[in-house]
């Protein structure tokens, strides 16, 4: 059993990553909407996003919508993989019988 990824194995960041993983392929979500979905304060969410960004798990882009600046967030490919591995590891912990994917 490998160690659980410490970046994701944390309640708030796991929620952030799980939410982002529910977006469609190639989609980005605006910061305020993500904040609303997660019911987190802006400051709190910023801190967690920065940690996820430092780990290379999320991509944050700044853009303009009309004249107002907008921050868009998406899960990176690396973040997607890390999340899948984490979910797989959790499932294995809960049900250790080897599944088809594991040899």
């Amino acid at each position: 059993m490998t160690e659980l990824d410490p970046v994701i194995h944390a309640q708030a960041r796991l929620r952030v990553v799980a939410s982002l993983s529910a977006l469609g392929d190639g989609d980005k979500i605006a910061f305020p909407r993500l904040q609303e979905l997660l019911a987190m304060t802006a400051g709190n969410l910023s801190v967690h996003l920065r940690k996820l960004e430092d780990a290379g798990y999320v991509e944050i882009s700044k853009t303009h919508r009309g004249r107002t600046p907008a921050t868009l967030v998406r899960l990176s490919r690396r973040g997607q993989l890390a999340f899948e591995e984490y979910t797989e590891a959790i499932r294995t912990l809960l049900d250790p019988t080897p599944s088809k994917e594991q040899s």
């Binding site: 799980a18 939410s19 529910a22 979910t87 499932r91 809960l94």
Partner: peptide, 11 residues
């Protein structure tokens, strides 16, 4: 796991 599933379905 519950946290993941709840968050994904809520989103």
């Amino acid at each position: 796991l519950r946290l993941i599933e709840d968050q994904q379905s809520a989103t």
